[in-house]
Design a protein around this nucleic acid. Structure first.
Lengths: 211, 211
DNA sequence: TTTAGAGATGACTGATAGTCAGTAAATGAA
DNA sequence: TTCATTTACTGACTATCAGTCATCTCTAAA
């Protein structure tokens, strides 16, 4: 049955084409300002067809958020394999986060949008599940690195690895959010560059982390 | 000219009535799920009238965000006047933030919504300016408390008060955001309560702040 | 060649933010 | 008191857009 397989491939191909078209449109006009007609035109398909492949505009955006989380996951993975003690690795993960925000600003915006959205365990769709499990894996990498750091003596032994990982994750999100959204205001009002601000966060955090 | 003054008062009164109606509706149905027709009905006015007093649905929401920021400002003010050294006062401000999130969950949601919204220095309306200046005043309280703590020797003297205030502000927003939005997930996935999580953030932060 | 069904279409529906021509009421000058 | 003017208000209307569905088209198996 070569035909069924070819059709399956074509369907998957079309799915990807639609996500690519959506990414193009959302990244250039912003999610809120983009219409499904824009996406349909970009994909050279009718609007109805989009809804054969995706339940809603939001679900389409979730696919893009998934891509972003995937990139971040790879960066985290690489950072956690960096040579050195636990403290070095935590720093590497922090730097990976910053690298992500600089190298992939569009994916990063999508990531933040999703990060600041309420989620319900009950009504999570397939797309949301995929993202959620990726985030869990990211958190696990982080927890393991912190555990390693406590064991090798580079991190304060009193710290609880899970709570500390969650706290650092939340803090980093908050700091990057402020840097991203209010960066210009900070520069203007307090005469501090985005970079200086992020560096201060790192230094401040090491004071608490170090053994 | 008593008439002009009376009319001025009536106009202000109507403005407040509309904001109150909007607050009622937005808090009970959520901002996104509320329509301007809902607000008009609650205010016992026609929709057109709402637009004589406010430019848009968003501007109406900004008024509610302003109220929230005002409450937070008062809590900060009170906390900064607490007896004790700088470290105590920083803790009091942190606790004020948590108190705000618990006592005024609706205002707090509105606050977070606004906090995670991009702002442009150029196209800030009057309502946004008002909120912005309130936030600046809050930040100033925070900076002064940290300065005091460095002077009285309760905080690490190497810290830069402005950068530290910004960092703590950003971190606290991130932590409360995660606690609020993903609280149930954290409890379920990692077996940590919202309260435990916030307490850990406090303890972790003191390690970096203390002299 | 016929036909079943998968895939694609785009006109349509419903919801809702925002507008505007028209109405009613209050004001003040004659 | 009368009437013109200003002010406040109204709600039907428009524009926009997510999402639907009756219909069409094309393919491949019989």
């Amino acid at each position: 049955m070569g035909i069924a397989e070819r059709k399956e491939r074509e369907k998957e191909r079309r799915r990807l084409d639609i996500i690519n078209a959506a990414e193009e449109v959302f990244f250039s006009k912003g999610f809120e300002n983009s219409t499904m007609d824009d996406v349909a035109e970009q994909a050279e398909l009718s609007k109805g067809t989009l809804y054969l492949y995706f339940k809603s505009k939001d679900e389409l955006f979730l696919e893009i958020i998934y891509r972003g989380n995937n990139i971040l996951h790879n960066l985290f993975q690489k950072a956690s394999e960096r040579e050195g003690d636990g403290l070095c690795k935590v720093r590497a993960i922090g730097e990976a986060f910053v690298e992500f925000s600089i190298k992939y600003p569009n994916y990063y915006n999508a990531f933040l949008h999703n990060q600041t959205q309420e989620i319900c365990l009950e009504k999570m769709g397939e797309a949301e599940e995929k993202i959620f499990s990726l985030k869990e894996r990211n958190m696990q990498i982080f927890i393991d690195v912190i555990k390693g750091g406590i064991e090798d003596g580079s991190l304060e032994p009193e710290l609880d690895p899970v709570k500390t990982a969650l706290t650092l994750w939340a803090e980093a999100t908050g700091v990057l959010l402020l840097a991203k959204l209010k960066g210009k205001l900070i520069s203007k009002g307090f005469n501090i560059s985005e970079e200086e601000f992020i560096n201060h966060f790192f230094e401040f955090t090491w004071r608490a982390l170090k053994a």
